[in-house]
Design a protein around this nucleic acid. Structure first.
Lengths: 111, 111
DNA sequence: CGACTATGCCTAAGAAATTTAGGTATATAC
DNA sequence: GTATATACCTAAATTTCTTAGGCATAGTCG
């Protein structure tokens, strides 16, 4: 498992998954990331749940409890401002990765 | 300036720049990153110098003081293990970014 | 000359995001 | 009846970074 590299990307990933899937619950997000990345990336619950609560507190997410086979799941969904924030953060992250690639692919200095 | 997104990538960038350029001093690294990314990315000195000291302490870098026009610069260079570590970290970071892109480009779930 | 900017190194306090390491509870499989 | 999967959570510690300075020399502008 490729650890220690999620720094700074967790919120963006959460938002983007919610945008794609409409609504998701915490445990589902963890499993989804594991599946999509073929076990290469692992979101820890200790990072996920506080992040969800923070995004909710910022008004980017809403919560709805739903029953599913004697279980109660806590579904998260983007608000309007959450949708805007998602677009912004996804764009920023792509741009950031582009800059990192520029650095990692740069040739030796000229001067 | 794109802030708060460098998390976890600083060491890798330092190592890669040293690998490309043979030897560099701290201030030069800061300027180089600014130039290469057209002022989009800024390494702060408060992050850089402790990182350099840590990498040196781990045996990945060696230091050599050199005089340049009445100034003394502190040049860093990769050790053998530093070179290996660089390859490993650069590969990991590319792989990580690939996984992030997978997540950010994924379509809605099927099930 | 005086002030400001660039060069070049550094540290320390605090903030932010994460890992680690738990806890609680129900359901299912062996 | 023990273990695994599901489903939520928190708290302490760690890592990494920002902020905000300090110190010193060199060059430029008025």
């Amino acid at each position: 498992m490729n650890k220690k590299l999620l720094h700074g990307t967790l919120n963006t990933i959460i938002l983007k998954l919610l945008k794609d899937n409409g609504e998701m619950y915490g445990y589902e997000i963890v499993q989804h990331v594991k599946t999509l990345t073929a076990d290469q990336l692992k979101i820890t619950e200790g990072a996920l749940y506080p992040a969800l609560h923070k995004l909710e507190g910022e008004g980017l997410l809403t919560v709805e409890y739903k029953r599913y086979q004697n279980r109660v799941r806590k579904y998260y969904r983007l608000t309007e401002s959450g949708t805007k924030e998602t677009q912004s953060q996804v764009a920023d992250l792509f741009e950031f990765m582009r800059q990192i690639q520029t650095l990692l692919e740069s040739k030796p200095k000229l001067g």
